[in-house]
Computed example of a mutant assay.
Amino acid sequence: MQAFVGTGVALVTPFKNDTSVDVAALERLVNHVIEGGVEYLVVLGTTAESVTLSKEEKELVKKTIIEANQGRLPLVLGVGGNHTAGVIAELTADNLKGFDAILSVSPFYNKPTQEGIYQHFKSIALSSPVPIILYNVPGRTASNMLPATVLRLATEFPNIIGIKEAAGDLVQAMELIKDKPDDFLVISGDDMIALPLVLAGGAGVISVIGQGFAREFSDLIRLGLAREVDRAFGIHYQLAPSIDMIFEQGNPAGIKEVLQLMDIMKNTVRLPLVNVNEDLAKRINSFVAKNYKLANH
Rank of each mutant, 00 (worst) to 15 (best):
I132G: 02
I243K: 09
F184L: 08
G116F: 08
I284K: 13
D182Q: 14
I221H: 08
A154D: 04
A3G: 05
D179F: 11
D230N: 12
I264T: 07
E57S: 10
F217Q: 03
T13A: 06
D182M: 11
T13V: 07
R140K: 13
G6S: 10
R270T: 01
N275P: 01
I34F: 08
L75E: 08
E175Q: 14
Q114V: 00
G116Y: 10
D263Y: 11
D230K: 14
A93T: 11
L11A: 07
T64Y: 14
E257C: 15
A295D: 13
D230I: 10
P241R: 15
V105E: 00
N267E: 13
S286V: 03
Y292S: 06
I187C: 02
P107E: 09
R231F: 12
F184N: 00
P196H: 09
T149M: 02
L153R: 01
I235P: 07
V171S: 14
F108T: 00
I221E: 08
L29N: 04
K256M: 13
F108P: 00
I284N: 10
Y237L: 09
D94F: 09
F217L: 03
V269S: 07
S128E: 01
G80T: 00
N296Y: 14
D190S: 10
E257L: 14
S188Y: 09
P147A: 11
K58I: 03
M262S: 03
N31M: 13
P196N: 09
H120S: 04
T155C: 05
L26C: 09
R28T: 01
G250M: 09
D183P: 00
Q211I: 11
A203P: 01
M192L: 13
E175M: 13
L220W: 12
Y109S: 05
E90T: 06
V42S: 13
P241V: 11
Q249E: 07
N285W: 07
G210D: 05
Q70K: 15
I193W: 12
R231W: 12
I163T: 06
I193V: 14
L26M: 14
V269I: 04
S54R: 11
G80K: 06
R215I: 02
V186I: 12
V12E: 08
H32F: 12
G45I: 07
Q119C: 09
S188T: 04
R227L: 10
D190Y: 11
A101S: 08
I284G: 06
Y135E: 00
E59A: 15
L134C: 04
V5P: 02
G201P: 05
F287E: 01
Q260C: 10
V79H: 12
L26H: 09
G201D: 05
T92E: 06
F213N: 03
I132S: 04
N144G: 02
V198P: 02
V288N: 07
D183C: 02
E175G: 06
L77M: 09
D18G: 05
S54Y: 11
K111F: 14
K266Q: 15
P158T: 06
R140D: 00
T52A: 12
Y40Q: 03
E49P: 00
I235T: 08
S218P: 03
T7M: 13
F184I: 01
Q260K: 15
